[in-house]
Amino acid sequence: MNETRDRILDVALDVLGENPDAGMGDIATAAAVVRRTVYGHFPSRLDLIRTLTERAVAEMTAVLTDVNATGAEADAAWVEFIARVWPVAHRYRVLLALRRGEYGEAIHGLLGPVDALLADLVERGQDGDAFAKHLPAGVLSQVAYGVVFAIADNDLPNGARAATITSLLMLGVPETRATALVDERH
């Protein structure tokens, strides 16, 4: 039962990644199950989206908590976080599109733990003069992290590198420092 549920979720990510407006029938067809099976696991499309978001939040929170525990400088910790979360961000990039639509409030509410951890990291960077102070930490972290999802959504070659450098620039890290941090990581 869990295997079918997990397969439906994995297929849903692919289907919704191709078409964020895809319906439950499209997901059922792609998963090679009947619609009733999908609805048996997820009574509504919103339940499916919530579950996908919960999976993404759990994965991102685990990575961010682990990175924060290293005690590295905030800008280096950001680089490590983006490097480790890139596959997660790329896999769940459809949530950005869905966050702008009818499911925005539900997705935004579930992302609270990630948002809080990111804001803490940015605030630490602001306190240590690694990040700019022109915006509050919570807003600045969302701007920088939004860039990561935007680049993931465009599937650029060397996307992880581009996302990391661009997000560091958004945080106010000088370009030479941003590039050096990324090059040190690789």
Rank of each mutant, 00 (worst) to 15 (best):
M1W: 12
N2K: 10
N2L: 07
E3N: 13
D6G: 00
D6C: 00
I8D: 08
V11C: 04
A12V: 02
D14I: 12
D14N: 06
G17V: 05
E18N: 13
E18Y: 05
P20E: 05
A22G: 11
A22R: 04
G23D: 14
G23E: 09
G25K: 11
G25Y: 03
D26A: 13
I27V: 15
A31Q: 04
V34E: 10
R35M: 03
T37E: 01
T37F: 00
T37N: 02
H41F: 13
P43H: 09
R45L: 07
L52A: 08
T53S: 15
E54I: 05
R55S: 06
A56V: 02
A56H: 13
V57S: 07
E59Y: 03
E59I: 01
M60D: 11
A62G: 12
A62C: 04
V63C: 05
L64I: 09
T65R: 09
D66A: 08
V67Q: 07
E73P: 01
E73G: 07
A77L: 06
W78N: 02
V79S: 04
A83T: 09
A83G: 15
A89V: 15
H90F: 09
R91P: 00
Y92E: 01
R93D: 14
V94Y: 03
L96Q: 15
A97W: 04
A97V: 13
L98G: 10
R99W: 13
R99K: 14
G101I: 14
G101Y: 05
E102S: 12
Y103L: 00
E105F: 08
V114R: 14
D115C: 03
A116W: 05
L117Q: 15
L118D: 01
D120G: 13
D120K: 09
L121M: 15
L121T: 07
L121I: 07
E123I: 06
D127N: 11
D127P: 00
A130T: 08
F131V: 06
A137R: 13
V143Q: 03
A144W: 00
G146S: 09
F149H: 10
F149N: 02
F149M: 06
I151Y: 10
D155L: 12
L156P: 01
P157S: 10
P157R: 14
R161H: 13
R161A: 12
R161M: 04
A162V: 08
A163R: 14
I165C: 07
T166M: 11
L169Y: 02
G172W: 02
V173W: 02
V173P: 00
P174L: 04
E175R: 12
E175H: 14
T176P: 14
T179Y: 04
T179S: 11
A180Q: 11
D183H: 06
